[in-house]
Design a protein around this nucleic acid. Structure first.
Lengths: 204, 204
DNA sequence: CCGGTTTGCCTAACATAGTTAGGAGTTTGG
DNA sequence: CCAAACTCCTAACTATGTTAGGCAAACCGG
């Protein structure tokens, strides 16, 4: 008589368990490293056995995939939070954007590896999980265009520069700031190159 | 009566087999990917079984380690070949050095992953294998200093920039030239930033 | 030339980890 | 209330790095 129930308790529970698995996976990845994550570990920590996880994810890579999607989706939220506060000065805005992404990447090694490196053999993000990554890039492209960086090559150069600094920092001085402290200078270099206003050239 | 024999046939044979194992490992890594390398595969291809490889290398990671050392040692040879031909113009020399390293990295994906990325879980190069990598960096640092790039931060910025371009190229456009073609511009940007002579600023 | 040692490779087997098969107990929807 | 669905389990398979132990050929001092 009654129509569909308002809540789908089954699906709700299923979703809750999926979330719990993912949270636990992040936890272990942060503790032991992304690659050291094992299904038996994840399962044990939530009071299950490994095969039971297959009721929630099709494979271990599907878990990585969901984590990948989460990481980029959450960064989208960070972008949302930042955008209203961006300076109208192109240079300052560029620095804020770069610093924000840099900090997000450096804050969690496992997450950075998953998002930005091919550290898991055989893992390739699915189109659905890749979508937020593409959107982050697209929003970055639009934002930079708004700031005066219209050239496609220039945007590629910016992403390479930023990615290079992040990788160097994580690989050669994790926890330190050897490359972190070069970030503003790098952005200035880039801005100078494009002739953006408010030049503050360094190192004569 | 006679002293030690001139040649140690035993060691020679051992070395030859080690080389054969490494060559085969490179071959498989290039074919299937670095992480997809298995000891059973390597062994089979040289007419052995997996455990026999342990007479030549202490572990699979020891094979990766030797490959890592080879890759960097071979690049040292490339540097040797390049150095005499370097232009006296800092900018031109910088471009040649950057392009040479870029091309070396891009020429072999598996090798690049091993040299420059943490793509093999748990693999950390030994001090001996790390040494040539350090020397490449050191020679680069000296060479750049000679060209007028004395600041330590500037050198770090250069390596980050170059590494960022390489990673972007390999990750997002393998086999293409989307970032490769930005290399000269990137070096000019860097040289402009440092005020090196022969400026050819682009993109007004 | 001969007996012991070393070397080179083997088979068997173990541990770990992802994954599949199949089943039992519980929940749930008609 | 019953059948279907769901949840989780145990057992087991596969792949792969690795260890144990053995056997035959090569080597070498006397």
């Amino acid at each position: 008589m009654l129509g569909k129930p308002v809540r789908d308790r089954k699906t709700e529970r299923q979703q809750a368990t999926r979330s719990e698995i993912l949270e636990t996976a992040w936890e272990i990845a942060r503790e032991k490293g992304l690659a050291e994550l094992t299904l038996r570990d994840v399962a044990a920590r939530i009071g299950m056995r490994a095969p039971s996880l297959y009721s929630y994810f099709a494979s271990k890579n599907a878990i990585y995939d969901a984590m990948y999607g989460q990481a980029w989706t959450r960064y989208l939220a960070v972008m949302d939070a930042i955008e209203p506060t961006l300076s109208r000065s192109p240079r300052a805005a560029l620095k804020t954007m770069a610093r924000t992404f840099f900090d997000y990447a450096v804050a969690d090694l496992a997450r950075h590896q998953l998002m930005n490196q091919r550290t898991i053999p055989g893992f390739v993000p699915s189109p659905e999980s890749y979508a937020p990554a593409v959107e982050v890039l697209e929003r970055g492209r639009v934002e930079l265009a708004r700031l005066g960086v219209q050239d496609a090559g220039a945007f590629d150069l910016f992403t390479a520069l930023l990615g290079g600094l992040i990788n160097a920092q994580q690989a050669n001085d994790p926890g330190g700031d050897r490359w972190a402290r070069l970030l503003d200078e790098a952005v200035d270099m880039f801005a100078d190159h494009l002739g953006l206003p408010e030049s503050t050239r360094r190192r004569a």
